[in-house]
Simulated assay, not measured.
Amino acid sequence: MPPAEPPTRPGKLVRDGIPGIIRAAGKDPQVYVADPAEYLARLGDKLSEEAAEARAARGGQEVLEELADLLEVVRALAAAHGADFARVEELRRRKAAERGGFTGRVVWTGNR
């Protein structure tokens, strides 16, 4: 699948339940359903947005909430590319077994 073009319409991708929450607050949300190409582009934007929010979080529950949002976007991206999250997790485990994870805090500074 080719890279998605950036969205040209205003707005941002929101969770499916957000329009209902807005309606319950007595407001009238203006929404539409994105076509597949726009959806991929907006998921990419949302991935960057959620990663920035996770990075800026101050710790504790705030970090966990942002990581949960980030994970939801990853799940949606996997589904948009025809895979379920179990496939992503399988690939993550394989890479961790072959190359390790990031818990060792190893920083590479180059080769001699």
Rank of each mutant, 00 (worst) to 15 (best):
R112Y: 02
A57G: 01
G100S: 02
R87N: 04
L71T: 13
L64D: 12
V88G: 06
P19I: 00
T109V: 11
D35C: 11
V74E: 09
P6K: 11
E5V: 13
G59L: 08
R93V: 07
R105Y: 07
A52D: 15
L47P: 03
E49K: 04
A80W: 03
A25K: 12
A79P: 00
E72C: 06
K12D: 02
F102A: 11
E72R: 10
G17D: 15
L40F: 08
T109M: 12
A83P: 00
V107Y: 13
D69R: 05
F85G: 10
E5W: 10
R58H: 03
K27N: 14
A96H: 14
E5N: 15
E98P: 01
Y32H: 14
A83Y: 11
A76S: 13
A24M: 02
R15K: 13
E49F: 06
P10W: 02
R75F: 03
R87Y: 01
G100I: 03
P7H: 11
A52T: 08
A68S: 14
A80K: 01
A96F: 13
L43I: 07
G104F: 00
G101H: 01
L91E: 08
V31T: 15
Q61E: 12
N111S: 09
R75H: 09
Y32Q: 07
L67Q: 08
G20A: 14
P2W: 05
G26M: 12
G44C: 08
K95W: 03
L71P: 01
G44I: 01
R23G: 08
A78V: 00
K12I: 09
V31Q: 04
A54N: 06
L43G: 02
G26F: 06
V107I: 15
A34H: 05
V73H: 07
A97R: 15
A37W: 01
E90A: 15
A37I: 10
A86P: 01
V106W: 09
G20K: 05
P3E: 07
E49R: 02
E50M: 11
V106E: 13
V73W: 02
R23S: 10
E98H: 01
R112K: 11
D69Y: 04
V106P: 00
P36S: 06
A52V: 06
R15T: 03
H81K: 05
S48W: 00
G11W: 01
G60L: 04
A86V: 08
N111T: 07
P29R: 07
R105N: 09
T103M: 12
L43S: 03
I22T: 02
G20V: 01
A80V: 04
D28Y: 06
P10G: 12
A79T: 07
F102N: 10
N111H: 05
A80R: 03
R94C: 09
L70Q: 03
K95L: 14
K12L: 14
D28N: 15
G82S: 11
